[in-house]
Simulated scan of single mutants.
Amino acid sequence: MLMHFQFKPLFENKNIPGWNFSFYHKKQRYTGVYHQTGKIEWTTNTPEQEDLEALTSQVHELMLFHVYE
């Protein structure tokens, strides 16, 4: 489960797509860039392989909910 999920626009011009995000999982902080295409670029602490697919899916769902709705 993701804790304290946050995101903000990557650029000052909010019409340009791209967002920085951060969250905690298992007491570890993760950050990344969410691109318009849905691609996630991890900037710190790439999740363990066993958690990667689930966390990627959760980030994608949260971004769709907050940004595109």
Rank of each mutant, 00 (worst) to 15 (best):
M1E: 08
L2H: 09
L2I: 14
H4D: 15
H4F: 11
H4M: 04
F5P: 00
Q6I: 01
Q6L: 03
Q6S: 08
F7P: 04
K8H: 10
K8E: 13
P9Q: 06
P9K: 07
L10F: 04
F11L: 04
E12Y: 01
E12D: 06
E12I: 03
N13C: 07
K14Q: 12
K14Y: 00
K14F: 00
N15A: 07
I16D: 04
I16P: 02
I16A: 08
I16N: 09
I16E: 12
P17V: 08
P17C: 12
P17S: 15
G18I: 09
G18E: 14
G18Y: 00
G18R: 12
W19C: 03
W19H: 13
W19N: 12
N20G: 00
N20K: 04
N20W: 00
F21D: 05
F21P: 05
F23K: 12
F23A: 10
H25K: 15
H25V: 13
K26C: 11
K26G: 07
K27M: 05
Q28M: 12
Y30L: 14
T31W: 03
G32I: 04
G32Q: 05
G32P: 01
Y34H: 12
Y34P: 03
Q36M: 11
Q36Y: 13
Q36W: 10
T37G: 13
G38M: 02
G38L: 01
G38T: 02
G38R: 07
K39D: 15
K39S: 14
K39C: 13
I40V: 15
E41N: 14
E41T: 15
W42L: 09
T43V: 09
T43Y: 13
T43W: 11
T44M: 01
T44C: 06
T44W: 07
T44Q: 09
N45G: 13
Q49G: 05
E50R: 15
E50I: 09
E50N: 06
E50W: 02
L52W: 01
L52D: 03
L52E: 05
E53S: 06
A54D: 04
L55F: 08
S57H: 13
Q58L: 13
H60F: 14
H60S: 02
H60Q: 00
H60V: 01
H60A: 00
E61P: 01
E61A: 14
L62V: 03
M63F: 02
L64W: 02
L64Y: 02
F65S: 15
F65W: 00
H66I: 03
H66S: 07
V67H: 00
V67T: 03
V67Q: 10
Y68I: 03
Y68F: 08
E69Q: 14
E69I: 07
E69L: 07
